[in-house]
Computed example of a mutant assay.
Amino acid sequence: MTVIKDLPSNNQLEYFIEQARQTTAITTAVVHPVEGNGLAGALEAAKQGLINPILIGPEHKIRQASEEINADLGSIQIVNTEHSHEAAEVACNIVRQGEAQALMKGSLGTSELLGAVLHKESGIRTERRLSHLFVFDVPNYHKPLIITDAAINVVPDLYTKKDIIQSAIDFAHALGNEHPKVAILAAVEKVKANMQSTIDAAALCKMADRNQITGGILDGPLAFDNAISKQAAIDKHINSPVSGEADILLAPDLEAGNMIAKQLIYLAGAQSAGVAVGARVPIILTSRADGVLARLASCALASYMVHHGRKI
């Protein structure tokens, strides 16, 4: 795959998809795809050569959904289950047996799927905290932008943030970025005793100095403006190797990350894709509001992770 630094501007997600098409499709357990939108996304990804789907859920509902969207399931494997909870458990079991390289969310709640993933005995958790990564193609930013965590960890503590950052760095490595730059966001650029996000940022940077976090270049606390704009950093007299060149934005909490992500989509015209990391395999978490591009790009990102061969 072509490395991230070679990506053209303004069609970055399409480029990820094109590169993933040139590799072997990854076997993906699609959990409870009983509605047309979710099933169509999996089938389109299969058509594009990104995934080899295993459809897991009530077979009669899956086939009914396929009829509603006029899709031919052909020889695609279907594993029949009674309900969504069983589908999530069966999908995790398939992963544990080495028969699937990724999970894909169908028509069930994220919490239900992740509950099965994180189950102490039957799940596919690892020692690292599960987290979510958005990858954005922002029209007025010169490279892909990763934002984490905007979907799973509500109020992450210091050690959870450590895992979130390390997973994001490893993910960037899978995309071909050998030295990703991480901006640890807060409302201000100075450490304030009454602002926990700034204290965490300072601690995380020192953890990187002590090799507790590896593979990236960290700086923080940084406000959003001087993380993204070199000129904003200059105006505020901030000398940072990350300002204006951030590859990864670490949000202080889920609410902040989610707001940044949706503002980029709805106000800045950004395109996005996303995956959950920290389990044995990448988890493709798509929303019912996601379009075809987001679904395909999310599958492509999972493909990068699998073919990179790195546990993230």
Rank of each mutant, 00 (worst) to 15 (best):
L285D: 05
A187W: 00
D163R: 11
L55A: 06
G38L: 09
I248N: 03
A201F: 08
T198M: 08
G278N: 07
I147H: 01
S287Q: 09
D200K: 00
H142G: 13
R295I: 03
T23A: 09
L267D: 01
S111F: 12
R125E: 11
D253M: 07
L254Q: 13
L250G: 03
A201E: 09
R310A: 11
H179P: 00
Q77A: 15
I152L: 13
Y266I: 03
G257M: 06
Q166T: 07
A116N: 04
E112W: 07
A91L: 10
V3D: 10
A151W: 05
D225H: 08
I76P: 07
G115V: 01
Q231W: 10
V135L: 15
K5G: 05
R295A: 05
M104P: 04
I54V: 15
D200V: 02
E14W: 02
E68C: 01
I312M: 14
G278L: 09
A233W: 01
A46L: 02
D137E: 13
G216V: 03
H307M: 05
E255P: 00
A102Y: 10
A174G: 04
I169D: 04
T27H: 11
G274H: 01
E67Y: 04
P282E: 02
R129S: 15
S243Q: 08
A172E: 08
A202M: 06
P156K: 03
G220P: 07
A87E: 02
I217Y: 08
T214R: 13
V182K: 00
A100K: 12
H132D: 09
S167M: 05
A297S: 08
E44R: 14
T27E: 08
V31N: 03
H237T: 13
E18P: 00
N239A: 11
V277E: 02
E82N: 15
A294Q: 08
I62G: 05
L103K: 03
D170T: 12
A279M: 06
Q19Y: 04
Q196T: 14
I265L: 15
L118D: 14
L204I: 01
S272C: 13
E35Y: 08
G244F: 01
L267N: 14
S240K: 05
T160D: 15
E14V: 03
S107W: 11
S298P: 14
P156V: 00
Y159S: 09
L43V: 04
H85E: 15
T2I: 13
V242A: 12
D170M: 09
A246M: 00
A302I: 11
L130N: 06
K61F: 11
D6T: 15
Y15P: 00
G36N: 10
N153L: 12
A279F: 06
S243V: 06
K120P: 13
G98R: 13
L204G: 02
E68W: 02
H237L: 13
